[in-house]
Amino acid sequence: MNLSPDNIIFWQAGIFKLNATIVYTWGLMLVLVLGSKLITRKLSTDLERSRWQNLLEIIVTGINQQIEEVGLKNPRKYLGFLGTLFLFVAMASLFTIVPGYEPPTGSLSTTAALAICVLVAVPMFGIEEAGFGRYLRAYTQPTIIMLPFNIISEISRTLALAVRLFGNMMSGTLIIAILLTITPFIFPIIMSVLGLLTGMVQAYIFSILATVYIAAATRARKPEPEPKLEEKTTPDNNKRINHG
């Protein structure tokens, strides 16, 4: 019994190997990109639009709104990264309904990779927004004594991010696998449904936590929020909410 899809290796040459994690990730990527491409091929800018376009618009505007609600002023800038995080994790758990599929997020390698991405993205966005010096200085706030704790906090929360997602996804598949050996009917289906729910919740948690970290990095270290920007974005947001 495999704890991780990493262990299912299809092909290997030296350190290069093609395990289930990578293959399923590619599969998800293909589905996501092809689906997007197919739907966005004939987008309507009119009031009348296809249900698929509506679905995508709901998803995109929903993510956008979530990012904004967390407190990021310019959500579109972060939409690519955070939205993809959510969609990837969500799709990974959604596809568990396909028999024989192993969610790539059930591998600690994948969740670690995502966490590393968050770990890198947070200071990147922070520095971009606040400037290099001011971003680094924030680690010494409120006093220099806090510097090691801040660094530890940064690393530990990334680790927690990775392990939390891994644990949840892995446990989900593991429970279903165990239950399949004990009670092959009905009960695994219920657990699968529960696993779907857990997966969605995890996707939400993962992306929202990443958003919060980025928001903390960009906003909290700013000396003053810019009121003009807020005024400018607020009516736009309201419009979008109403529209959505």
């Binding site: 987008l43 309507s44 376009q53 995508l56 956008n64 690519g80």
Partner: peptide
């Protein structure tokens, strides 16, 4: 995804 959808919106 995001580009076309946001542009359409």
């Amino acid at each position: 995804l995001y580009g076309p959808i946001l542009n359409a919106i």
